Simulated scan of single mutants.
Amino acid sequence: MKATNEKLVFNTLIKQYLYFGLPTEGIDDKTDFTIHNIKDIHLELPFKSPVYRPNFFSFVFVKDGRGVYTTDDLHFTTEPGTIYFTNPGHYKSHEWFELNEVYLITLSESFLKENVHPDIFEEFPFLLAETVHPRVLGQATFSEFEDIYLQINKEYQSNSRYRARLIGNLFVVLLLKIKEYFWKDYNPIYEGNRSSQIVKNFKRTLEQHYRDLNNGKVHQVFRLQDYADEQNLHPNYLSNVIKTKTGKPISTWITEKTIAEAKSLLQNSSNSIKEIAFLLGFSEANHFSNYFKKHTSITPVSFRKQHGTIAC
């Protein structure tokens, strides 16, 4: 592993593992979803990672292992029966002392939107929580989660033409179980200090705004000033808070959200490219196509054809 004091940013798990000098065999670099037993990755213990910032969701299921992980300035221990998840934008590090069976799932927002639920954050608002504390479950309860993530792993290893959809549907079950056991009394208003609340409000506004765009309630994409106005903040102050707390400027949040929504619409709707462009606030289909290709290296038409939808 390379020695460094800088805080690293990774868009995919495979890039993270390559940087850490860890084996990547069995990790599919052509999808925004991964699952594996990290015992197969960390062959030498103890292992301690540098501080890094992933731009993907992580779910960890510790059946038999011990370690420590940090998210921003919070430190948590992991022991048998621990389940936790982290969302994009936070500084993280982790250390493992024992590893026998610990499964890690990583996935992008795009995968969630395309294969799990188009309104994923509306049904599962806890995914946007600023900080989620781990839970330690008894053996019987943990086994309920184990059955699901092992089935997900089985589908991940398969060559089924329906692999992504099968994984997506199983992941819905997993999220419902998490919601049932962990967040029955989840209160999205209480998230900690003032800066955390600003980030939370920004994320919720971002989600609601894109739902309004998709539903035709609004036709102009929010800019920085609009998000600042929603919280009665100066735009420079909002920018500083978002960048400091999440590591990403607001422009990046907006871009990633636009692309995630575009992919979801291209795959899950019969709207034409022109209609999708209009729904996302683009005045011209060509502008939308150029924007989409710039950020995905593929045109909307090609993306739609690859995902089995023929309307253009």
Rank of each mutant, 00 (worst) to 15 (best):
N115I: 01
N87T: 11
I27A: 11
V199K: 06
P54T: 05
Y227F: 15
Q157K: 13
V102K: 08
K184G: 04
V51T: 13
H234Q: 12
W96A: 07
L170K: 14
K257H: 09
V51P: 00
E122N: 10
S108Q: 13
P118R: 12
H117T: 01
T296Y: 04
D40I: 03
Q220V: 14
N232L: 08
H94R: 11
K294V: 06
T31E: 14
N87I: 04
P249C: 04
A285E: 09
N215D: 14
T71H: 06
Y291I: 03
T141V: 09
K154C: 00
L104D: 05
I105D: 07
F292M: 05
E155Y: 11
E275K: 13
P300G: 07
M1R: 03
E114R: 14
N55C: 01
K39W: 04
S270V: 09
K248D: 03
K113T: 06
R211N: 07
L22E: 06
I242H: 08
A311D: 08
Q16I: 00
T34S: 15
R66C: 04
K274G: 07
A140Y: 01
S289L: 06
F61K: 05
N268A: 07
W183I: 04
V172S: 04
V9C: 04
H307C: 06
G281M: 11
E155T: 03
L166N: 14
T78K: 12
L45D: 07
N153K: 14
T309E: 12
N87G: 14
S160L: 08
I27L: 15
S283V: 11
W253L: 08
G65W: 09
V60G: 02
T70H: 09
L137R: 02
N236P: 00
V102F: 09
T71F: 03
F20E: 15
K203W: 02
L206E: 08
K113E: 02
N115V: 01
F20M: 12
K154G: 00
F124W: 12
T309A: 11
